[in-house]
Amino acid sequence: MESLTILVVDDDPVIRRLLQQRLKNEHYSVMVANDGYQAERLLKKQHFDVVLTDLVMPGDIGGIEVLEITKELSPDTEVVLITAHSSVDTAVAAMKKGAADYLEKPINFDELFLRMDKIANLKSILKSAKDIGQAMSITEAEAASTIQNLEMTVAKLQTRLDEVETALRDRTKAEDERIANAIDILTGE
């Protein structure tokens, strides 16, 4: 399984460093942003599997805004919010806006790794499903083209057979003339 790319967004330098270090130790690929503005710039430049953001940050871009920006720029990126116990209601509201999950402070790292693991599993299942879907589309397109060619060929032959039948049943002409006409139709003359 490929390792997740994670963007950590937190204005607190101590928590930021701690998250970065612990996630790196678990072999995740991590980048950090000091605030929402920097997060937005990074999100515009590259794709992340997960954005792990503090809910409350100074400035106009808080965790909810980071969530909205992320979903706008890259809908398949999962957003996990870090929140104080007192703002759990806000976090639940954020889940309704498309956040994957939230973690309460102080951060329990086992819990964090578990959540990241779950997201990684989901991403890998989705990727397999997408691969299967693509393989199916290719097979289907190939089969469709074969079937459609056959369908048109059969229709053309049917028309010609109908013409042959009409020619053979044409009572206004002598038998050998009817046969000659039928042969002309069959040989495409």
Binding site: L150, E151, V154, A155
Partner: peptide, 22 residues
């Protein structure tokens, strides 16, 4: 459906082709 056929199923229809579709 793109992999379906009406040959031998229903003779009341004739197929027509337009680009990649019938």
């Amino acid at each position: 459906g793109s992999t379906e056929s009406l040959t031998g199923v229903c003779s009341r229809f004739v197929p027509k082709r337009h680009l990649r579709a019938i």
